[in-house]
Amino acid sequence: MVKLKRKHKAFSLVESLVGMIIILITFSVGLMIFNEVMLSSNNRQRIHADMLIQKTLAETIDKNEFLDQSIATETYTIEKKVSPYKSEKNISVLEIKIFNSDKRLVANQKMLVVTQ
């Protein structure tokens, strides 16, 4: 068996384990904060609301349903309003508003549609 001539500096098993646990705890806390930030931001809701608006718009045009409507889903309330556009006979303004469960406006979109 070869005998080491010099004494090598190194962490002991306990020190390494403690270091790994600290990294793990930091990572977990960081991930929790990130998750918290993601959930607390409006982005997630707004992405959902935007998708819901696109879906409602496509359905409205497809079914030619240019009527004022209020549709309640599990998490959102969709409010659809059709109003005449200035003096144009064939064009209407379609406004879709999405409210969350706290009745706070999440997204709002206006567009011109041909309703002749």
Binding site: T26, F27, V29, G30, L31, I33, F34, V37, M38, S41
Partner: peptide, 11 residues
């Protein structure tokens, strides 16, 4: 550092 990175990524 890791938290900072995650917050920056969110931003």
């Amino acid at each position: 550092m890791l938290t900072g990175f995650l917050l920056l990524s969110n931003h």
